[in-house]
Design a protein around this nucleic acid. Sequence first.
DNA 1: ATTAGGG
DNA 2: CCCTAAT
Length: 692
Amino acid sequence: MVFKKRLDHGFNGFQVPAIPRAPRSARRRGLHKKTVEDSQICAFELLASIAGKLLQESESSASSNASEGNNQPSTSKDVKREQQNGDKPFMAGWTNQGSCGDSSLASELASQNINLKCILKEFSHAESDDALEHNSIINNSDCSQKVSEDVKSVICKSKTDFGNYSSKVEGDYPHFGESCDANVKNEIQRQQEVEGLKTEGVNTFSSKEPMDSCLKSLAAMDPDSNVKLPLRQDPVPDASFSRHGNDIMLVSRDDDENLSRCFKPSTKIKASRTPPRIADRRIRKLLNSKYWKVAPKLKDCELSRSDGGLKPLYRKRKTFCSRERCHRDILFKRRKMFDQSSVVISDGGFSSESVSNSPEKGMTEDKTASAAMLHGANRVSSSVMGHQAPYRSKDSHVKFSIKSFRVPELYIDVPETATVGSLKRSVMEAVTAILGGGLHVGILLQGRKVRDDNRTLLQTGISCKDNLDSVGFTLEPSTVQTSPPMCSDDLPPLLTCDSSQLLTSSPGNPVLESVISDPLTDPLPLTNSGNHIESNNDTVSSHIDTTDKTTPDSKALVALPAMSMDALAVAPLNQKTRHSELVQRRTRRPFSVSEVEALVHAVEELGTGRWRDVKLCAFENADHRTYVDLKDKWKTLVHTARIAPQQRRGEPVPQELLDRVLAAHAYWSQHPAKQHGKLQAGTLKIMEASGK
DNA sequence: ATTAGGG
DNA sequence: CCCTAAT
């Protein structure tokens, strides 16, 4: 599906095929039968041709690489080789392409599918045993997580190898290249998955893997997986599948090797694991950084890639909207926008990190008021959650309270002449479009996406006692269709990726990836299935950007050109999932004169540099005034006191207070913190100095 | 968690 | 106010 879509993208312009929407069953069937639609075929052909080129090149390069050693080889590559042995060259070609492109995307996409997920999980499992050297499988979650990471890294590496190819391709077919990459990625991923599946199957049968869960999942998925894979429409997958049957073991082995290689060389692995903590912490704190500083540190191939890919888009946007900056600003306020140049904009779709779990009862009220829609989502999700808990274990229930969901940034272009009302409408439309399209709910555990829907909370490690605080939810757009109407030009590359991703998810799953199936969900005001963004009348256009960055996986989504390579080479460690969060700014609350007075007084006594104490002494009961706020206010007070009264804004502060501010500031500048006992003296001095 | 500063 | 680096 994705594949097709992308192709369409590149070639036909910006059509986001509604195909994904097509009944799954139908699709499956078609795939299964290997029936390909005309359009698909065309796309495929093109792709194939490119693939052929790439293949040729890659092969030559591969040989060279092989001679060099395994340092650079990517998993995909290895796999490729193996496949080559027993597989069609074609496959190899694909693989190469895949390597060229982002693999991360693929992973993401893959994740979307439950079936795929399962497979992945399985795969990871197998991998984990060998490559990770970890004892037996501890938790499924663990394994899967690790695995996914591994896969990613591997992919990245492969990318490095073939980076040049990709560039080539792009040059020839700008748009196509992008789509291609994405597709390739997907392909690769799929392949891997497939292999993994096979492997799993083999293992299972061979009784190598005792995992119950594996078996279970396998059994569950089997039917689906078979069907689904074919869906891809790629002849390749099928072929590989059928052929591989026997080779599975071999393949897996290779994969393992690759993995090991990848990891061994560097401590990267460790690093990659470590980060999660940070991420968690962050999440917990709900710290939202507008920008991902990660950019410079990008270690993730995915991440890096995303950057690159996005950049172009950004520029475009900027260009486009530059003149509407004002409006945009407004928008910004509504939704935080990131336009860090290098950093990916797409912030992980909707990351709702603000989920808080209350072990106790009831869901807490949503304080977030970002948007009505949010609330709605919120409710839904929460309700869902509640629902879920009971589902499996009657023993204990896990209560989740979701304070807010974050929505991916929305880009909305509005003419300067547009009215506020139209702006509102635009935003609303965009929102509804997203919601209407369907949202996926993702579960984050320790910053990582939990993909296996079959797992129980208990199994996953989500329970009251455990790390409820490390659980997060994400809302992800499941569809891209909304965008089509707007600007076909902007979307191409980047969007393609996103869309594909989204598509992947959307197709099979109704709406909620993990949990939502509850009737309650529907009630959402937001859910206007019928509402698409209609750009009519006032609204010039509304553009929704939905890139998901929440999860490590999501990172992959974005496409990134050259940088990625470097990043990869340097270190793929950072799996830090920077959750993008758009935490809304605290509401502004100007200091009242009385507050200023209290502040001044406190500072006079305590001095500057003991804001904690100041807070305690003078703003004990003002929860909204943090010591940082007080410090900042002091800063502004000092500034205010120094500038001409005419330049001062806001509620005028009595000159008397300002004088005291200056006096105190001067005093404490000379007398660094003193202990309490001496405060008085200091205060007195200040008083004298100020003449008051 | 605080402090200190830059944005 | 926000965001960070340092403590």
